[in-house]
Amino acid sequence: EIHIRTNGEEQARKVYKMLAKRNYDVKIEQHNGQWVVTAS
Rank of each mutant, 00 (worst) to 15 (best):
E1Q: 13
E1K: 14
E1P: 11
E1G: 10
E1Y: 15
E1H: 14
E1W: 15
E1R: 13
E1T: 14
E1N: 09
I2G: 02
I2R: 04
I2F: 13
I2W: 14
I2Q: 03
I2Y: 08
I2M: 06
I2E: 03
I2T: 04
H3M: 13
H3P: 02
H3S: 12
H3R: 14
H3D: 04
H3I: 15
H3Q: 12
H3W: 13
I4E: 02
I4M: 04
I4N: 02
I4S: 01
I4D: 02
I4Y: 13
I4R: 01
R5Y: 15
R5E: 07
R5A: 08
R5C: 14
R5W: 15
R5M: 12
R5F: 15
R5T: 12
R5N: 06
R5V: 15
T6Y: 10
T6D: 02
T6F: 15
T6N: 03
T6S: 05
T6M: 10
T6E: 02
T6V: 15
T6P: 03
T6W: 03
T6R: 04
N7S: 11
N7Y: 12
N7M: 07
N7H: 09
N7I: 07
N7E: 10
N7G: 07
G8R: 13
G8F: 14
G8W: 12
G8D: 15
G8I: 13
G8E: 13
G8M: 10
G8K: 13
E9Y: 15
E9D: 03
E9F: 14
E9K: 08
E9W: 14
E9T: 04
E9S: 05
E9N: 03
E9R: 09
E9I: 14
E9H: 07
E9G: 04
E9A: 06
E10R: 13
E10M: 10
E10H: 07
E10F: 08
E10N: 08
E10P: 06
E10Q: 10
E10S: 10
E10K: 13
Q11F: 10
Q11W: 10
Q11D: 09
Q11T: 08
Q11M: 10
Q11Y: 10
Q11H: 12
Q11A: 09
Q11N: 05
Q11P: 03
Q11K: 06
Q11R: 06
A12C: 09
A12R: 01
A12M: 03
A12D: 00
A12I: 02
A12S: 02
A12G: 02
A12V: 02
A12F: 01
A12E: 00
A12W: 02
A12P: 00
R13Y: 11
R13I: 09
R13V: 07
R13E: 05
R13M: 11
R13P: 00
R13F: 07
R13W: 14
R13N: 07
R13S: 04
R13K: 09
R13G: 04
R13C: 14
K14D: 07
K14E: 10
K14M: 10
K14W: 14
K14T: 06
K14L: 12
K14N: 06
V15Q: 02
V15M: 07
V15S: 02
V15C: 13
V15N: 01
V15W: 14
V15F: 09
V15Y: 10
V15A: 05
V15D: 01
V15G: 01
V15L: 13
V15R: 02
Y16I: 05
Y16W: 06
Y16T: 03
Y16V: 06
Y16F: 11
Y16L: 07
K17E: 15
K17F: 09
K17L: 13
K17T: 11
K17N: 14
K17P: 01
K17Q: 12
K17R: 11
K17V: 11
K17G: 06
K17M: 12
K17Y: 12
M18Q: 08
M18D: 09
M18P: 01
M18L: 11
M18R: 06
M18N: 06
M18T: 06
L19N: 00
L19D: 02
L19T: 01
L19I: 03
L19Y: 06
L19W: 04
L19P: 01
L19E: 01
L19S: 01
L19R: 00
L19K: 01
L19M: 05
L19F: 08
A20T: 10
A20F: 07
A20N: 05
A20H: 07
A20L: 15
A20E: 10
A20Q: 14
K21R: 09
K21P: 02
K21L: 13
K21N: 11
K21H: 09
K21D: 15
R22W: 14
R22Q: 12
R22S: 07
R22G: 06
R22E: 09
R22D: 08
R22V: 06
N23F: 15
N23K: 08
N23D: 07
N23V: 04
N23T: 04
N23L: 08
N23A: 08
N23R: 06
N23H: 14
N23M: 09
N23Y: 15
N23P: 03
Y24N: 04
Y24P: 04
Y24Q: 04
Y24V: 05
Y24F: 11
Y24D: 03
Y24R: 05
D25N: 13
D25K: 14
D25L: 13
D25P: 05
D25Q: 14
D25H: 12
D25W: 10
D25R: 12
V26L: 04
V26K: 01
V26S: 02
V26R: 01
V26Q: 00
V26M: 02
V26P: 05
V26E: 00
K27Y: 07
K27A: 06
K27S: 07
K27W: 08
K27P: 00
K27G: 03
K27H: 10
K27D: 03
K27I: 06
K27F: 05
K27L: 05
K27R: 11
I28Y: 04
I28R: 01
I28F: 03
I28T: 02
I28D: 00
I28L: 07
I28Q: 01
E29Q: 10
E29R: 07
E29W: 14
E29K: 08
E29Y: 15
E29I: 11
E29A: 09
Q30R: 09
Q30L: 11
Q30Y: 14
Q30I: 13
Q30M: 11
Q30F: 14
Q30D: 05
H31S: 09
H31Q: 11
H31G: 04
H31E: 10
H31K: 12
H31V: 13
N32W: 05
N32D: 12
N32M: 07
N32F: 06
N32K: 08
N32T: 04
N32Y: 06
N32S: 06
G33M: 05
G33T: 04
G33P: 00
G33V: 02
G33W: 03
G33E: 06
G33Y: 03
G33N: 05
G33K: 04
G33I: 02
G33L: 04
Q34A: 08
Q34K: 08
Q34G: 08
Q34S: 07
Q34D: 08
Q34H: 13
W35Y: 04
W35E: 00
W35R: 00
W35M: 01
W35P: 00
W35Q: 00
W35S: 00
W35L: 01
W35G: 00
W35H: 01
V36R: 05
V36W: 14
V36T: 07
V36L: 10
V36P: 00
V36G: 03
V36S: 05
V36N: 03
V37P: 00
V37I: 10
V37A: 00
V37Y: 00
V37H: 00
V37S: 00
V37K: 00
T38I: 15
T38R: 07
T38E: 03
T38V: 13
T38K: 08
T38Q: 04
T38A: 04
T38P: 00
T38D: 02
T38L: 08
T38Y: 08
T38H: 08
T38W: 08
A39S: 05
A39R: 03
A39E: 02
A39V: 14
A39T: 06
A39I: 15
A39G: 06
A39H: 05
A39P: 02
A39Q: 03
S40M: 10
S40E: 05
S40H: 10
S40Y: 11
S40K: 12
S40W: 13
S40L: 09
S40Q: 06
S40R: 12
S40P: 05
S40V: 12
